[in-house]
């Protein structure tokens, strides 16, 4: 892992965090306002998704034509193709936590930088949940040797 790769990742993280801040996604009320179809619906999250998906789709079209990324030997494309039970079940579990808090992982971490205690409680739970996953699925992961995608 050389310095250029870390620099690219740092730049990407900075842009990502700035985008989440600007978009209002670091305000949990904007997220629950989007999810609350029975209340006064807030379309902000949909607009964030449209802007982000559209921009990334263009980069994806470019990437498909490139033999390699600029600073790495190969593209690390996700390898899973099947719509499995754990995909749907895991997303449903995530949805419950998202609806309860108004946080998903990105905005929670940006809010930690801003000193939010609420985000800190959430992130503590999130790291524990991820650690439980890592322990629960340690055998499978070791056998697969990281062939699952890094979505």
């Amino acid at each position: 892992m050389n310095l250029a790769q870390r620099g690219v990742a740092l730049l990407a993280g900075l842009l990502f965090g700035a985008g989440l801040l600007l978009s209002g996604m670091t305000q949990p009320s904007k997220v629950t306002g989007f999810l609350d179809v029975a209340g006064s619906w807030d379309p902000a999250l949909a607009l964030v998704m449209v802007g982000a998906i559209g921009t990334f789709a263009l980069a994806f079209l470019v990437a498909r034509r490139w033999p390699t990324p600029v600073y790495a030997d190969a593209f690390s494309w996700p390898t899973l193709r099947d719509v499995e039970l754990r995909l749907v079940g895991g997303s449903a579990v995530f949805g419950v936590g998202w609806g309860l808090s108004g946080y998903c992982p990105g905005p929670a971490l940006v809010s930690i930088g801003a000193g939010s205690t609420g985000a800190a409680w959430f992130t503590g739970g999130m790291l524990a949940g991820m650690a439980i996953y890592a322990w629960r699925y340690r055998g499978e992961r070791a056998a697969e040797n990281d062939e699952r995608p890094q979505d």
């Binding site: 990407a12 985008g19 999250l45 449209v50 921009t55 990105g106 991820m130 979505d151």
Partner: peptide, 29 residues
């Protein structure tokens, strides 16, 4: 929100075209 979303998409684009990685926060952590 639209401009913020474009920045997020740009961030994911930089990571993909720069080092070939998917900018998924849960996966990164």
């Amino acid at each position: 929100p639209l401009l913020g979303g474009i920045l997020v998409g740009l961030a994911a684009s930089v990571l993909l075209l720069g080092i070939g990685r998917i900018a998924g926060v849960s996966g990164v952590v």
